[in-house]
Design a protein around this nucleic acid. Structure first.
Length: 126
RNA sequence: UAAGUAAACGAAACGGUCGCGCCGGUUACAGCCGGUGAGGAAAGUCCGGGCUUCACAGAGCGUGGAUGCCUGCUAACGGCAGGUGGGGGCAACCCUAAGGACAGUGCAACAGAAAAUAAAUGCUUCGUUUUCAGCGGAGCGAUUGUGGAAACGUGCGGUAAGAGCGCACGGGGACGAUGGCGACUGAAGUCCCGUGUAAACCCCAUCCGAAGCAACUUUGGGAACGUUAAGCCUGCUCGGCGUGUUCCCUUGUAAGGCUGGAGCGUGUCGGUGACGAUACGCCGAGAUAGAUGACCGUUGUUACAGAACCCGGCUUAUUGUUUGCUUACACG
RNA sequence: CGGGAUGUAGCGCAGUUUGGCAGCGCAUCUGGUUUGGGACCAGAGGGCCGCAGGUUCAAAUCCUGUCAUCCCGA
């Protein structure tokens, strides 16, 4: 498992950021939902240790949140929030950030502080 | 100034610090440098094509589907332009599925005598009968308040009673000179006058093979079925093809298809216009859980909204500015 | 990408085939019954038939466009 992850890591390169890959498969999401979680005002953060040695990030926005433009906007804000604090996060975890419907229309600073607070609660910061 | 109406243009710009997709270069394959990176609707998926596969994609039929005034434009269209007829609006202007009801079938609630072979009640007259009533014969054709629609309308004459039966005025239809490529127009004149509905079935004319980028292409092996058969992508028939078809594993959580095209810009010419021709210049996304974001500064206050094979339209959502025209009011 | 269905009273549904009265149940309101409430009985109100056009004398029903929701298949 670890070897497979590392192989994929080098084949595809650091797609998102230097130390993080994106989480894609449904079974990986299902496994991560069983880990620790914390629900903030605008987002819900799940984290579970993996065996890859690096982080994998999954983003979820419900179809009921809005149309394509709204959902893309939320995903970009969440990804940017993660990127800015990536260096402070411990490695070797699958992290999923789920947007709640009330997050629509909120500013970047609101989303970022919410994600940061949840990660602190989960003791993901170094 | 207000209301209305028609059209055009735009869809933030510049700079800085981080970050992402693709392409090119370099390289020690960490990285670095340069270039480029969502829309007018990318949307809905309502039409039309390209492209790919079905052997070539063939023919005919239809209780199949679509279209339906004319001429043109276009690769094509159910689109567009210009016209014709009809309708709405004081007007600018807008809307219009707009072939056929003497090919046939059906339907028209309620009311009304009657809703389509004009049946019934009636009117006039003759016979019968003492008279009325009734009965029988002949003639007549809308008197009877309804209804969306009632037998061309009104008036006069005429008659036993009546009737386009005749006349005057008016209405509608068919034929029709002329003009027009055509839809159509419709002089004079002749003939005629029992409805509506085909977005009811239908008739007529024209067109349509199917599936869709999860199409499709690329490897090797095994098993089963089959050669009189299966298959050939919505129905039926004919004709044709000539060896595969299905399943499993693998190549394969892959690569190609994937963007240079009925392309864009400017000028000239032709055309009322849609559009066409031509010269020069240009290359402007290509992802695969799906790339454009964050923080700032200046002008500005920004809505609807995110490509997924590609084009031409239609429809819907939505913001700002400008211009032409019409009507009303006021002033000159 | 392709296919199918549904929008009717506050809620759940008929009516659309064959055009003409918009109905049923629950809920709401009023009255009766009861010491009071529930149940029961009687009566009443409540509708732009998703929206916009059109055909027709007449449209929930037919036609066109459009919006929303849901369900399948690849």
């Amino acid at each position: 498992m670890k070897g497979l992850c590392l192989l994929l890591f080098f084949l595809k390169g650091a797609r998102n950021m230097k130390n993080t890959q994106s989480l894609k498969l449904n079974r990986d999401f299902r496994r991560a939902y069983k880990g620790a979680s914390h629900a903030g005002g605008y987002t819900v953060v799940y984290a579970r240790k993996n065996r890859c040695g690096f982080n994998r990030l999954g983003l979820t926005v419900s179809k009921t949140a809005g149309k394509a433009v709204v959902r893309n906007r939320l995903k970009r804000l969440m990804r940017e929030s993660y990127r800015l604090m990536e260096d402070d996060i411990r490695e070797g975890y699958d992290i999923i950030i789920v947007a709640r419907n009330r997050a629509v229309g909120k500013t970047f600073e609101q989303i970022r502080s919410d994600v940061s607070f949840s990660l602190n609660k989960l003791e993901m910061k170094k």
